[in-house]
Structures are given as structure tokens and as C-alpha cells.
Write a protein that binds this DNA or RNA. Structure first.
Lengths: 166, 166
DNA sequence: GCGGAATAGATGAGCTCTCAACTACGCTTA
DNA sequence: TAAGCGTAGTTGAGAGCTCATCTATTCCGC
């Protein structure tokens, strides 16, 4: 009867200025919240168990691999990974320990560093990619119709324009 | 040119049995991945900064508040929060320290415990709810058309049937 | 050139989550 | 009623993330 977001017996009636969610909105919100949460956890766990690579680290390797010379400035890498500078810095330290990435001083900017994907790192990515793609296909694309996939992209793009206007 | 999931120059051509994503699927996947990631982080940060409550803890309070007597078995609470037993156990310990939840032995089952929402916990939820609802509305519902909301619910339900068949 | 603001990145503490044990109780069967 | 198994929940170690802080370098205006 009550809702995720409005505790109490009939709080929607209280005119406190809050734009509460109506029943339909709540259904939609919960479906979205739970499905994204479960999907992300599922993908994370499958990738982790099969390869020992957390998805956030996988994303770093992917971004570096897509660059012509497999290297990128730390701050640009952070942006592309939707990561904070701090998070990326910690993550690259771990990846360095694995021998998959190394830091290289940047010629143009004395403050800057380049994250460079090593051959070992590329090999690790090559080994992990099929596992992850299969997970995405199994749990996402195999479940949705073409129309649903199109709608998903449309919704995602719409939200991105608001959340990350570049 | 290359993709998130298939490293290298033209790996899709390699017939290694992997059902790689085509360009359109990749666009859709990235839009979904990035938008969900950004939205979740945004909601988490806004709730955390305004109230000091992580979203996972908020969800626990919500589930307890929606129950008639504001209490629930630990394991059922874990299921409803899409949480592992371990995660819930740790979280409830923290919530106990805040005085928002207490554990009570279960009469019917000597192994079981009830998590009980205290008045302080309910008050904390009441204070937090408007903040969180406003975030959800601002960053989600205000951005989407009615058709997009309907599609979002449809996609979410479809994925849930697969990921969490209950 | 020089001083102050902005930028690049690192660092450490604190927190949450995961994973793998581990304890304790209930249920079933012989 | 005792053995064995499944279930409920906890615990601790290890890992990643956030936030605030810190250092080093560059940029900009005078």
C-alpha cells in the first residue's frame, strides 16, 4: 500500500510540496531499479568468476585498447570510463601490479601521465572479452525484442543528455 | 572502430564462436550501461550528501516501513532488497548502531531473527524520502516521455522475469 | 617574469560489499 | 533418539570506492 519512497500510511496526501511518485511511476521505477541492479550484479559476478577482472577494470582495458597506440591521458581515461580521478588512480595502480598497464610521463604536460596498455594487458582483455560479451548477450539481448532494444537505446541516450551533457 | 567487447583490429571476423555485438547492439548497450551507471551514482550521491544514508540502507528502511508491523525476517528482507544474506547482516548491524533497526529473536524459528524498524528509523526514512523522490523525479521522470516510461517498465519487467524468476 | 588560480594526479582513512568459512538450529530418516 | 542434511544468520579478511586532502605543474593576468 505504501510506496518505496513515501513512508507511512497515506503520505501522498500530505501536501508537503514533494512530487511523490504515483502508483504507475513506482511500478516503472522499481522494475527499472531492480532489473538494472540484478543485471549489473550478474554481469559483474560472471566476469569476475571467469576472469578475476572487475567490470570497472575491464572498462579501463577496453578504453585503452580502442585507442590507436593503446595509451591515454589519465584524466581522459577517467572521463571515458565515467570514473572519478581518484577511482581511476587507484585502479591503475592495481592494474600496474598485475602488469597490464604502466604509467608513463607525458611529454606535453609535466603534470600529466599516460596510462599505457601492455601486451599482457591486451592479452588479458582478449581472454576476457568473449566471456563478457556472452554474458551481455545471454542476459540482455537474448531477452529483448528488437523494439525493446531500440527503446532501451533511446531511453539511455535521453538520460545521458541530461546526466552527462559532455 | 573496435568495440567495447571485442579488442583488436577486426576481431569480429575471427570465427571463435563468440556471438559478438554488432555496431547497433554496441550503441544500445553502451547507452544503457552508461545511463544506468550515471543515474545510480547520481541518486546515490544526492541521497548520501543530503541524508547520510546509502541507497542500500534506504531500501532496507523502505521495505521494513511497508510491512504492517514494521518488522521482517532477515532472510525475507534480504530477498526483497535483492541483497545477499551477508550484505544484509552487515547493513543491519550498522543500522542498529544508528538506532534505526533492532534485531529480535523469532518465536517460530530459533534460528531466525526479525529486523524491527524503530521509531527513530522511521523518522529517518520520513526525512530522507522526499529528497530521494525528488532526485528520482528530476533525473528520471522529468526527462522521459510517457511512452519512454512505459517502455522502461516493459524492459525492466522482461529482464526481471529472466534474472529473478521468483 | 611573477604571483595566484586552476588543473593533473596521488594518497589515506573510512565505509560497503563479496566471498568463504563458521555456528546454531530445525527437519528427516532410520 | 541419533545421524545427517539443509537452512538462518554471522563473521572476518580482502577488495574497491568515496571523500577530503595534498603535491606538483601549468596557465593567466599584470
Amino acid at each position: 500500500m505504501t510506496t518505496e519512497v513515501s513512508p507511512g500510511a497515506a503520505p501522498d496526501a500530505e501536501d508537503d510540496g514533494t512530487r511523490w511518485l504515483d502508483t504507475g511511476e513506482q511500478r516503472a521505477w522499481r522494475a527499472w531499479l531492480y532489473s538494472t541492479q540484478l543485471l549489473q550484479e550478474r554481469l559483474e559476478r560472471e566476469l569476475m568468476r571467469a576472469t578475476g577482472i572487475p567490470h570497472a577494470y575491464y572498462e579501463i582495458l577496453v578504453q585503452l585498447s580502442e585507442t590507436p597506440d593503446r595509451q591515454m591521458r589519465m584524466s581522459e581515461l577517467a572521463d571515458r570510463c565515467l570514473s572519478s580521478r581518484s577511482r581511476l588512480s587507484h585502479a591503475v595502480s592495481r592494474l600496474e601490479e598485475r602488469g597490464w598497464v604502466r604509467r608513463q610521463v607525458c611529454a606535453e604536460d609535466g603534470r600529466g601521465l599516460l596510462a599505457v596498455l601492455t601486451d599482457e594487458g591486451f592479452a588479458a582483455l582478449e581472454a576476457a572479452a568473449p566471456v563478457h560479451v556472452e554474458s551481455v548477450r545471454t542476459h540482455l539481448f537474448d531477452q529483448l525484442s528488437a523494439e525493446q532494444v531500440a527503446a532501451m537505446e533511446d531511453i539511455g541516450r535521453t538520460l545521458l543528455r541530461h546526466l552527462d551533457p559532455d
